[in-house]
Simulated assay, not measured.
Amino acid sequence: MTRAKTVIDTTGDWDPYARGCPSRELLDQIGSKWAVLVLGELGKHGPCRFSGLRQRLDGVSEKMLTQTLRTLERDGLVRRTVHPEVPPRVEYGLTPLGQTLREPLKALTDWSVRHIPDVLQARAEYDTRTG
């Protein structure tokens, strides 16, 4: 698979509202359900093996977890470390860049837990009006 070359803009004029801006793609990736949960889990508990992540993230498939970890690794948010043991032990942990997402993602997660009753009520009211 050939990857498109990314143009590095050193002016800092990124606009996620503009079509084609790489920051829009990054928001899409880090805002995905599994990325939020993987980053949150690694931020909360530190480096973890694939099997440990899979157990803690109830409902994630092996394929989806693999894709999510690869994307996060490519974006420089997660580091994959292979320990020279027999059999090899592989761990995933946050990079320094990934660590910078801990606070905003925790705030988002906390908000969702705190406001889910309000959202569920709004959904029920909407469904009653439109159903």
Rank of each mutant, 00 (worst) to 15 (best):
T71K: 11
S23L: 15
L97M: 12
P84H: 10
V113P: 01
P47V: 04
P84V: 07
V7N: 11
G131Q: 06
K44Y: 04
E25Y: 10
E25W: 07
T71G: 09
A124D: 15
L37Y: 06
L108V: 07
I30D: 12
T6D: 12
V82Y: 11
S112L: 01
T11V: 03
W111H: 02
V86T: 15
T66I: 04
L97W: 07
V7S: 11
H45Y: 07
E62K: 14
E91G: 00
V36T: 05
D118G: 01
T95W: 07
T95M: 09
P84L: 10
T10K: 06
W111Y: 04
L101I: 04
L26R: 11
R80A: 12
L26C: 09
E85L: 14
D110H: 01
A122D: 12
T109V: 01
T11E: 15
P88F: 11
H45M: 01
R74L: 06
L72S: 02
A4V: 02
C48W: 05
M64Y: 00
D58W: 10
V113K: 03
Y92C: 00
M1Q: 08
G46Q: 03
Q29D: 10
L105N: 05
D75C: 06
L69V: 09
R54W: 01
Q121K: 11
P96N: 03
L72I: 11
K63P: 00
E125D: 15
P88D: 14
